Simulated assay, not measured.
Amino acid sequence: MWIMVSRTPPGPRSELLYSITSGNQVAHQQPAADSDSDPLRTSTRLRLTRLRGEADNTNSTRESPTQNLPVKPPSLYLDLEGIRLGRHGSISIISLYVIPTAKIYLIDIYTLGGAAFSATNSNSVSLKTVLESPAIPKVIFDVRNDSDALFSHFQISVDCIKDLQLMELASRMGNRAYVHGLAKCIEEDSPVSTIVKTEWQRTKDSASRLYNPEKGGRYEVFNERPMRPEIKEYCARDVALLPGLYGVYAAKLQKEGAFWRVLVRDATTDRIKLSQSTSYNGQSGDKRCGPWDEWNIQEAMEAWNEEVWWNIRTNDFVLNEDDDWVSPTSKEG
């Protein structure tokens, strides 16, 4: 089941990524007036319509809105929800925000299971293809448990990930000992208005009473079908605020230079490798700790400066726009 929450933007209407089985439903948001730059323009009044013409083909798809999308800045933003998300739990919903089409897709992994990842469009592109592609950037806040769950349950090894949590840490001035959570990042750094932040907090509080055991809820609410409006809105609102955070942190890192951008890229790769290891514990308190301390930052900076100095001196390699060292003749490639 793909549930689509639409902002009804100008221009052509985008298609669903996939339709898989008979009776799948898509929720189209009713057109709404602009509301203080809210990236979701959310409405709890959703009109359900059945997909037609693809009822009996489990591999049937429509053209994917993830095709031919810009990669600079990234077009795809992801968030996963589930029960004890990771190898010892399960994935319930993947929220996918496709920026150029201004659509948020809530992908029902609980119902579809592996079919959500293996179904292909007319060009043989699947969700697994997109998630594993080294050429399609995907923005996620803290990739570790998401990567753990995707790898453990569906053998998906994510690639080309932009980890917002690490981007915030690298662009931060001062102490980098501990990472921030998404809520703190939204409260302190999101460029949306106070009104939008208040609405996001209201949605979060309403949903947490349903899923948080400490507030009388239960995580299994993410697996209830049909989805409760509060959960649907919660899933959509979180991912809707990620592009704004990406813009803020990417701009700061652009000013800082290639060193910190490469450090973030390497640390993201390390997070993915760690999440796929047998020793990974997604509930460990150590997850609060950042990957860098003053000593290894200094060590990495010295190594970086030596590399830069050597390549300037020898002209063997230059940095391309992706912060990769390449030969001068291939810089334009």
Rank of each mutant, 00 (worst) to 15 (best):
N59F: 06
N59I: 02
N59R: 13
N59V: 05
S60P: 00
T61D: 11
T61C: 08
R62N: 15
R62Y: 12
R62H: 12
R62C: 10
R62T: 15
E63G: 13
E63A: 14
E63H: 15
E63W: 10
S64C: 09
S64I: 02
S64N: 15
S64M: 11
P65V: 07
P65R: 09
P65F: 03
T66Y: 08
T66V: 14
T66K: 02
Q67L: 10
Q67G: 05
N68H: 13
N68W: 05
N68Q: 11
N68E: 12
N68Y: 07
N68I: 03
N68A: 14
L69S: 13
L69H: 03
L69W: 00
L69P: 01
P70Q: 07
P70F: 00
P70N: 06
P70T: 02
P70V: 04
V71I: 09
V71M: 02
V71G: 03
K72Y: 05
K72V: 04
K72R: 13
P73H: 01
P73D: 11
P73V: 01
P73S: 06
P73N: 05
P73E: 08
P74T: 03
P74N: 06
P74S: 04
P74I: 01
S75K: 01
S75N: 00
S75H: 00
S75V: 00
S75F: 00
L76Q: 06
L76K: 02
L76D: 02
Y77C: 08
Y77R: 08
L78S: 06
L78N: 07
L78K: 04
D79P: 05
D79T: 10
D79Q: 13
D79G: 09
L80K: 01
L80G: 02
L80C: 10
L80N: 04
E81M: 01
E81A: 04
E81H: 04
E81K: 06
E81I: 01
E81T: 01
E81F: 00
G82K: 07
G82H: 09
G82D: 08
I83L: 14
I83F: 07
I83E: 15
I83K: 14
I83H: 10
I83S: 12
I83Q: 14
I83C: 14
R84N: 15
R84S: 15
R84W: 06
R84M: 11
L85K: 08
L85F: 03
L85T: 05
L85V: 05
L85N: 07
G86V: 02
G86Q: 10
G86S: 10
G86A: 10
G86T: 06
G86P: 06
G86D: 09
G86Y: 01
R87T: 03
R87Y: 04
R87I: 01
R87A: 11
H88N: 14
H88W: 07
H88S: 13
H88Q: 15
H88Y: 10
G89E: 10
G89W: 03
S90A: 12
S90Y: 04
S90H: 07
S90T: 12
S90V: 05
I91G: 07
I91P: 01
I91F: 02
I91C: 03
